[in-house]
Write a protein that binds this DNA or RNA. Structure first.
Length: 532
DNA sequence: CTAGGGTTAG
């Protein structure tokens, strides 16, 4: 039975057309395939994708692959130069960096697969397979993704539940919900058992995350006889309605679950609380009052059911007060929280600091910052960013620079810190600090990224610094960042106005060269950025 | 859409 369905699935997959980059060399021998699969599916699948770790070689490789026409020549040369052997670890890290570049990722994947087969009699790891399926999915090349999935089975490394999670996520992200559900139904043929409740939750969660709670609900109602509903399933659906700004539906679901005798837990309540509080306009005072009242009511209700609000519950409420610029209320709630013996988290502190700083009460904010440190909570870059933003608002260059220099020793920066500072100093035309901060950012290795360059070029254009703008524009292209269309356009307008048409022509030529390497026109080059 | 950049788990 299992074997039969597996064969027919494979046939169906085989008959579809695959992308031209890939030359199939398929054998239809399915006996061994099934055996391999069932033996490999008993291994525990890796639920999470591998983390992006520092790997200079992967950085170099991915950069070369993005910027070069023929990936194989530059791909082999750095390996030979460094004398490092090729490994699955290196492949995985390179693929992680190439997530949004389907062609270079696919080339390196195929190269690696053949390399392993030819030289080491080894195979590409399941992680690498999952990553290439993810990348193909991002480029909406689902036929190719399925093809690779089938090949995984032949290679004896999967596909695992994680592979299907990836494939389902890519389908849903592309808006292909029906195909996602079909992939879920095809799982059984590959992993040799029916998907369990956890995997069903994954499907519902993916649908909800990408704002298809309606489809998730239909699926849930259709299959609740097979998968016994629990509080996690309901929480997923509640979060789905909250994400699409329908807290009323979320509320109904909470009632439904209580009617069915399923006890909501703290996560359920916090999710709903968040749904009530986020995305509400706080501007008319009545709107704010209404939001706060419904939040307070929910807090009371959860206490009635014997669930004590936790740090997260308070963080959500504090965030609303903070957004509404209510420093007294924020502090009051903050004290109340601590009186109840709930210790603030870094997020809680950051919310309060943000509120105080944005209301101009910098002294109070600094005091709280000190208190954080004495309580053993190291302020995050985001905490400091609140101060920089306030200084930006006040145009207080000296104070911002002073804080920046003080912080240099502790090094508590992230890319946003640099962006806020850069934006500020460009706006105030202080180009000395701009240079200093840009240099620091490069040295720490935190940046620059596409946004840093975009910000800088836009800023320089605004200040009519055409020469520098062109220079940075060139540099970003050299580094493999493709400018957004707006960047391109604003530089174009500026150069025409400044009567610098020859410069423009040179830039245009360079961009076209880059774009052609990806076999597409300007827009196609721009794949969706990585999310989640 | 871009811009601005940490409340979060389901």
């Amino acid at each position: 039975m299992l074997r039969l369905s597996s064969v027919s699935t494979t046939r169906r997959l085989l008959s579809s057309s695959y992308i031209s980059l890939y030359q199939p060399e398929f054998d239809t021998e399915t006996e061994t395939e099934t055996e391999l699969r069932s033996s490999s599916s008993s291994q525990s699948p890796k639920p999470t994708p591998p983390p992006l770790t520092p790997c200079p070689l992967a950085d170099t490789l991915s950069h070369l692959l993005i910027t070069n026409h023929n990936p194989f020549h530059p791909f082999e040369s750095p390996l030979q130069l460094t004398g490092v052997g090729f490994s699955n670890e290196l492949l995985t890290q390179t693929l992680l960096r190439l997530r949004n570049h389907s062609k270079p990722a696919f080339s390196v994947f195929l190269w690696a697969r053949d390399h392993f087969r030819r030289i080491e009699n080894g195979q590409v790891s399941a992680d690498a397979y999952d990553l290439i399926i993810d990348t193909l999915g991002r480029a909406r090349q689902f036929d190719a993704a399925w093809r690779i999935l089938v090949e995984m089975g032949q290679d004896g490394v999967g596909p695992t539940c994680n592979t299907f999670a990836v494939l389902i996520r890519r389908h849903v992200a592309a808006g292909l919900t029906r195909q996602a559900i079909r992939a879920f139904d095809d799982m059984e043929a590959f992993i040799g058992r029916e998907p369990d409740k956890e995997e069903f939750c994954m499907l519902l969660d993916t649908l909800c995350k990408y704002k298809y709670p309606k489809i998730a609900m239909e699926l849930f109602n259709k299959r609740k006889y097979k998968y016994e509903p629990d509080e996690k399933m309901y929480t997923i659906l509640i979060s789905g309605w909250c994400k699409t700004s329908r807290p009323d539906f979320a509320r109904k679901l909470l009632e439904e679950m209580i009617d069915r005798g399923i006890e909501p837990n703290i996560i359920t309540y916090n999710t709903l609380l968040n749904g009530l509080c986020r995305n509400v306009s706080l501007h008319p005072e009545t709107r704010f009052d209404r939001t706060i009242r419904s939040a307070e009511e929910l807090l009371k209700e959860m206490q009635r059911r014997g669930i004590q609000p936790d740090t997260t519950s308070y963080s959500i409420v504090l965030h609303v007060y903070s957004r509404a610029h209510k420093p007294e209320l924020t502090l009051c709630k903050f004290r109340a929280m601590r009186e109840q013996g709930i210790s603030p988290s870094i997020a809680t502190y950051t919310s309060v600091v943000k509120c105080l700083a944005s209301c101009g009460r910098l002294d109070d904010a600094y005091e709280l910052l000190n208190e954080m440190s004495t309580n053993g909570i190291q302020p995050a870059p985001a905490t400091y960013n609140c101060f920089f933003k306030e200084y930006f608002g006040r145009k207080d260059v000296d104070a911002a620079l002073k804080l920046y220099h003080n912080m240099k020793d502790t090094g508590s920066f992230d890319i946003h810190t640099y962006h806020i500072l850069l934006r500020m100093f460009i706006k105030l035309e202080r180009f000395g600090p701009v240079q200093e901060i840009w240099k620091d950012m490069c040295e720490t290795g935190i940046g620059p990224d596409l946004d840093s360059y975009t910000l800088l070029v836009h800023g320089l254009c605004q200040k009519k610094k055409w020469r520098q703008a062109c220079h940075m524009f060139m540099e970003m292209i050299e580094k493999g960042f493709l400018p957004q269309k707006v960047t391109f356009d604003s530089l174009y307008r500026g150069l025409i106005q400044a009567d610098m048409l020859p410069t423009w022509r040179r830039l245009k030529k360079r961009v076209d060269e880059e774009a052609s390497k990806f076999g597409g026109e300007f827009e196609k080059y721009h794949l969706k950025p990585y999310k989640r």
